[in-house]
Design a protein around this nucleic acid. Structure first.
Length: 561
RNA sequence: GGACCCGUGGCUUAGCCAGGAUAUAGCACCGGGCUUCUAACCCGGGGGUCGCGGGUUCGAAUCCCGCCGGGUCCGCCA
């Protein structure tokens, strides 16, 4: 749809430049087009050519405009010169074909084809996910959905830290305190917080923790069993929360797999082969100063146990052999370590991951901490939002059954939480705000879900037409809606390439706005015959686009709410 | 101290990487719209030195330099 239109405009521009003899001029500006209020696509290429041609942008734009020859059957209707700009407009016939295409379910798949592994969440199994963790989960899961929609084959992975100090502390805690009969991850957190308190009060316990780490790494069967029980318990609770958010991982990979399989040892051996490693202060270290890193990277502790980074290197090599693109979603605290990881992988010629960094979510009272028990859990957030949604739906739809209202509340809450997270660009640090989280107005998932429900409501009242005449849809809102629907493939393609999921959130809002604008001024059911069929087809196209957009955001597309 | 990220109306935010035509939306505020397909909606209004100061450019929210403010990191933690 829009991608085709854009490609056509690009080649028209390039062909015109060739006619003018300017195609050899070094500029990639021929492909730089923008969706603008003045045109379906606008080019400012004339500005970039001007210094090199010593001509005014206006006259360059005029020459290009004159040289453009639109072939028969093109999606491009016309090009207009507006001063230095070139404005391209879509043809009516392409609007018609967009509408026909959008009637079906097979036009929403992109043209990418890589195998992608997306690693996200990977929270330590020492407690429940909090409102900071789910920024990782929502960004990661949305990216996975965007990549799939764009045509990629995607596997999502959760990298389980079962070897770290935190887990040794959890295991020690499970040995010394009873696990309460509450949600599993919450029970683990209580034990973990308690154990941390004990260690703070009695620092001599540290040696017991170290002993646990050594036993586990050595493969002691009892230690293995204890870790498995504790980690499985925590992960089961974390999974429950992720499921509430419509998130499932395709596979889980425990760090210890890479330590025990020998893959990590092999990798360390290869790093030693670079001549950049050495034993210093009793530990094996890698010198990355050539890449601008001040401090050495420690690969092995003095006592022979491994560190997170070494296991992570092995895990990344394993991943790199199984995909074309590796995507890691990580918090801002991982910026430095992920840059070091890339540098170390680079030394061995292993492809580095694309790292999506998101900045921290803090509370109005300061930063969150699992260890200190200072956090708002994702479960708590979902519970509260669901409660609020239940009140809203009960007010609006009092005649509906309890079951209906519960289900709508659940799906509205899940959508609201996901949208709240994904709508903000990852590089912005945010402060969690209950008021904003519980607001269901325009810049929120319910706004988009509501548009979808309205479209469904119309379609329930009439059969889809076998035939319709798209040329009857000439209203401003109608044309704008068709164009917005067409942009879906462009947005998804861009978001997938650039790994920017919030672009889809913005699009979703614009699509819903376009539909609501149409809905307000264009009666469908009561429209005269002919127009009625065409509008029904447009509602169906919009419904499909909204459904697919919501689905790609991992937000339920409610048919009634 | 060093490195990286952020700083856009009262609050939240898009645009920044690939510089261009009146800077995007939401909340809050003011005004209008439900006997008509779900008003979780729509229409209109006020409100912005795009942190500050330089520079590059025909043109800077966008690029460069310096400062200020906030966040993150600089562990034989993960």
């Amino acid at each position: 749809m829009f991608l085709d239109f854009m490609n056509e405009v690009q080649s028209l521009l390039y062909e015109a430049a060739k006619v003018c003899g300017w195609d050899q001029i070094p500029t990639n500006g021929f492909g730089m087009l923008e969706i603008s209020p003045h045109a379906d696509l606008a080019s400012s290429i004339a500005f970039r050519l001007a210094p090199q041609l010593s001509k005014s942008p206006q006259s360059i734009a005029k020459d290009l405009c004159d040289a453009i020859e639109i072939p028969a059957g093109s999606m491009v209707d016309r090009v207009e010169q507006a001063g230095p700009y070139l404005n391209f407009f879509m043809s009516n016939s392409s609007l018609a074909s967009i509408l026909w295409e959008a009637q079906g379910g097979d036009c929403w798949k992109g043209r990418l084809s890589q195998r992608v592994i997306v690693e996200h969440t990977s929270a330590n199994p020492n407690g429940p996910l909090h409102v900071g963790h789910i920024r990782n989960s929502v960004i990661g899961d949305t990216l996975a959905r965007v990549l799939r929609r764009a045509g990629c084959t995607v596997e999502t992975q959760y990298y389980v830290n079962d070897m770290g100090r935190q887990i040794a502390i959890v295991v020690w805690g499970c040995d010394h305190y009873p696990l309460e009969e509450i949600k599993a991850d919450h029970a683990i957190a209580k034990v973990y917080i308690e154990a941390n308190r004990a260690i703070t009060e009695r620092p001599e316990l540290v040696s017991e923790i170290n002993r646990q780490i050594q036993l586990y790494e050595a493969g002691d069967p009892q230690a293995l069993g204890k870790v498995k029980v504790a980690v499985d318990h925590a992960i089961s609770g974390i999974e429950d929360t992720l499921h509430r958010l419509n998130i499932r991982h395709d596979s889980y990979h425990w760090e210890s797999e890479y330590a025990r399989s020998g893959e990590m040892a092999k990798l360390i051996e290869q790093l030693e082969g670079t001549g950049l490693t050495g034993w210093e202060d009793g530990s094996l270290q890698l010198d990355l100063s050539a890449d601008g890193f001040e401090k050495n990277m420690v690969l092995m502790r003095g006592d022979g146990t491994s560190l997170y980074i070494s296991r992570d290197l092995a895990y990344h090599r394993w991943k790199s052999e199984r995909c074309d693109r590796m995507v890691d979603v990580l918090g801002a605290d991982h910026k430095l370590i992920s840059a070091q990881l890339k540098a170390a992988l680079d030394l061995l010629g292993i492809p580095a991951p694309e790292v999506v960094i998101f900045e921290f979510v803090s509370l109005p009272t300061g930063s969150m901490s699992t260890r200190r028990g200072k956090f708002i859990t994702a479960d708590e957030l979902l519970d509260e939002v669901e409660k609020q949604a239940y009140m809203e739906v009960s007010t609006r739809r009092p005649e509906e059954s309890e079951e209906f209202r519960r289900e709508v509340a659940r799906e509205v809450a899940l959508g609201a939480v996901r949208y709240d997270v994904v709508k903000v660009s990852p590089e912005k640090a945010t402060t969690f705000d209950w008021k904003a989280a519980l607001d269901f107005e325009k810049l929120s998932a319910p706004f988009i879900q509501y548009s979808h429900a309205r479209a469904c409501s119309i379609l329930r009242k009439a059969d889809l037409p076998e035939q319709f005449d798209p040329s009857l849809l000439t209203g401003e809102a109608e044309v704008a809606l068709i164009k917005k629907i067409a942009q879906f493939d462009l947005i998804v393609d861009k978001a997938a390439r650039e790994l920017k999921p919030h672009q889809l959130a913005t699009y979703a809002r614009e699509l819903a706005e376009a539909f609501n604008g149409f809905y307000r001024y264009s009666p469908v059911i009561e429209a005269p015959s002919g127009l009625r069929e065409a509008r029904l087809a447009l509602v169906n196209a919009a419904r499909n686009a909204l459904r697919v957009t919501l689905d790609t955001l991992g937000i339920p597309a409610l048919e009634s709410m």
